[in-house]
Amino acid sequence: MLRRMLLPLASTALLALLAVLCPAQGCVRTAPGWTAQAAARFWTPERMAGSMPASGRRLSPVAKAATASAASGPPGSAVHFAGVPTVGVLFSIGDDLAAHYCTASVVHSPGRDLILTAAHCEPGADIGFVPQYRAGADRQPHGIWAVDKVFTDPRWAPDDDAASDYDVAFARVRPDGHGRRVEDVTGANRLARTPGYHNRVTVIGYPQLSSDPADRAITCTTTTERLDERHQLRLACDGFFDGTSGSPWLLDYDVRTGTGTVIGLIGGLGGGGPTDRISYSPVFADPVLALFRTANRA
């Protein structure tokens, strides 16, 4: 199941700013005129509240229990909670003013300005990242951050099963209007190589409004395994509808700090899995770590 909506067309002005470069290690997209201030002016809390739900298959709603801990939900089911500053949503500009369409997370980096999501989310030049997004009056508790550059493996290609092993993207976000880096505001998860196919992880994501009217973060703690004979992981947990692509898989998650070590994300084969219950992830190995180094050097 594709865990994201099709992106709306960007505005003509932003498309005019878009430049695409493809070095040997990763793809870089830049939008010089897209700043945190521009993102905040466009995606006001009022406009977010009035944005249209993303179109797509509507599935049975996730369990409505509200909790601050993944351990409080029934086994194998995601639960709503208040979210954490290191995980948020991606918004894009388009004529239909579509609501958030993918999930992303902050990863620790020397520049303190990198987020991680799935490559099939296409986090291009007109994207804003909202950490710990939540419904209500305060939809941007930590601001909105403009994506500056995007890095994907050159072997990644949509609708290519073999390329789904590389369904990972890093994006650099611009400083906010006070000159702060995103990691200084939200903290960050650590990035690490996937230690094996069997791991106990906590997954945090944001389903689209069309699939989950609560419009809140969800979380689930469960065990991963190998996806058939592929170099990918799978897990079973209800509730990860469209919109949760890019949701981080966190090892050693600390509920007190809301952080952990990210060793995977919802992505890979079929855009992240066939249903809201079964999710996939590429294995984080040498290609992902090399892409991370490229993002840090650029």
Rank of each mutant, 00 (worst) to 15 (best):
204 I>N: 08
9 L>D: 15
15 L>A: 10
97 L>S: 12
30 T>Y: 01
253 Y>Q: 02
93 I>L: 11
279 S>T: 12
170 F>H: 02
261 T>M: 04
68 A>V: 09
193 R>Y: 02
288 V>W: 00
159 D>Y: 13
62 V>S: 12
67 T>Q: 09
195 P>Q: 13
285 A>G: 08
223 T>E: 09
134 R>T: 03
298 A>G: 15
282 P>F: 03
227 L>Y: 12
89 V>F: 05
208 Q>K: 06
166 Y>G: 11
60 S>Y: 10
148 D>N: 09
56 G>T: 07
296 N>R: 06
239 G>V: 12
247 S>N: 05
135 A>V: 15
7 L>Q: 10
159 D>A: 15
210 S>Y: 07
108 H>Y: 11
98 A>C: 13
243 G>H: 05
83 G>V: 06
136 G>T: 03
86 T>Q: 09
264 G>V: 08
232 Q>Y: 10
206 Y>E: 06
193 R>E: 00
108 H>P: 13
264 G>W: 06
151 F>S: 05
64 K>A: 15
68 A>C: 09
65 A>H: 12
107 V>K: 03
100 H>T: 07
15 L>G: 01
186 T>Y: 09
80 H>P: 09
264 G>H: 07
2 L>F: 10
138 D>W: 11
159 D>C: 14
107 V>F: 00
214 A>V: 10
195 P>N: 12
170 F>P: 07
186 T>M: 07
185 V>N: 03
180 R>H: 14
90 L>F: 07
211 S>T: 15
172 R>Y: 04
189 N>W: 11
282 P>E: 02
129 F>E: 03
98 A>S: 14
216 R>A: 15
22 C>E: 12
63 A>T: 13
95 D>K: 14
164 S>W: 00
210 S>I: 10
273 G>C: 04
10 A>R: 06
175 P>F: 08
245 S>Y: 04
33 G>V: 00
151 F>L: 05
